[in-house]
């Protein structure tokens, strides 16, 4: 009896939380799913009749001359987005890990200052940060002017508006999202375990591979997710400093809700994207569960 009442109380006590989750997170999401299964409205908007057409057009294309064929271009866009986001994640990890390791080995006072410095770029708008890179990389940008001032102008290669610039921009944008969870994970890593490994003949590499990485796996997974998810949906960075020559996931969705006036298709793409990311997102959970048996 009383335990039942306690349970009711607990459920009711959490009501605001459920409302928040339901109202702010779930409802919009369900709306997107619903839109994905409707007919395209004449000029934007939707016709509220059930249709799977949006999903079909993800896979099949009726060409201008009426011939139907399997549509590979969206698969290709997914792959390009995933590859770019994956490369960004990998670079962030490679660059971020040593930085995070360094920060985590500092005395606490200096550590918090360094973490603050890492987070500072987030105080400014994403657009401002990307435009800053244009000022740095461009033809008459900082690098070019500095090199030509040194008489080495011929060394300058303009990478603005190329995939390299996208990678650079996304790495810069998302690096803090990698470093911060890595820091908190590495901070908790007991330095004596690393000493113990060295004491037991583990080389530098083995200490990294057999002790540090497995013990900070949750942080690594969290960092990778935090970088990969926004990177895969990022359309601002590729558009602005990538020259917009590669269509990514996010662009495709924006285009459908914008000038293409095809909301159901945009929603369908978003739903597929969500599912794919959701699958990738369970990865850290699995890792944590594996490690959960440890702790």
């Amino acid at each position: 009896m009383s335990s039942a009442r306690a349970r009711t109380n607990r459920v009711l006590g959490l009501a605001p939380v459920w409302l928040l989750i339901g109202g702010l997170l779930l409802a919009p999401l369900l709306l997107v799913v619903a839109i994905a299964f409707t007919e395209q409205g004449a000029y934007g908007g939707v016709d509220w009749t059930f249709s799977g057409a949006a999903f079909v057009s993800l896979l099949y294309n009726v060409d201008f001359d009426g011939t139907a064929s399997v549509e590979w271009s969206y698969v290709q866009i997914f792959l390009t987005s995933a590859a770019l986001a994956g490369a960004t994640t990998a670079i962030c990890l490679l660059v971020g890990f040593p930085v995070a390791y360094f920060i985590s080995r500092q005395p606490p006072s200096r550590r918090s200052v360094l973490m603050l410095l890492v987070a500072i770029p987030f105080w400014t708008d994403l657009l401002v940060r990307i435009y800053a890179w244009m000022i740095i990389l461009g033809n008459d940008g900082l690098i070019a002017s500095a090199l030509s001032a040194l008489g080495a102008g011929w060394l300058y290669r303009n990478i603005l508006f190329t995939p390299k610039a996208i990678l650079l921009g996304m790495t810069y944008n998302y690096l803090p999202l990698m470093i911060l969870p890595l820091c908190s994970s590495l901070e908790k890593l007991d330095g004596r375990l690393i000493e113990a490994a060295a004491d037991l003949y583990a080389s530098r590499w083995s200490r990294m591979k057999d002790v540090i990485i497995p013990l900070t796996a949750p942080g690594i997974a969290a960092g990778c997710m935090l970088v990969f998810i926004p990177a895969v949906g990022d359309f601002v960075t590729p558009t602005i400093i990538g020259g917009g020559k590669t269509l990514l996931f996010g662009n495709l969705v924006a285009l459908q809700f914008g000038s293409a006036h095809n909301w159901p298709f945009g929603a369908a793409i978003a739903v597929v994207m969500l599912l794919l990311i959701g699958c990738a997102g369970t990865l850290p959970l699995l890792i944590r569960r594996r490690l959960g048996r440890v702790a």
């Binding site: 395209q40 004449a42 000029y43 294309n61 201008f64 271009s73 290709q76 866009i77 917009g244 020559k245 590669t246 269509l247 662009n251 495709l252 285009l255 459908q256 000038s259 293409a260 006036h261 095809n262």
Partner: peptide, 20 residues
């Protein structure tokens, strides 16, 4: 002009295929 739905759809198909 604002194109009728069919033309608009074809147009976005063309442009998407150019950008991708």
């Amino acid at each position: 002009r604002q194109c009728p739905p069919k033309a608009a759809k074809l147009a976005s198909q063309v442009w998407t295929s150019v950008l991708k």
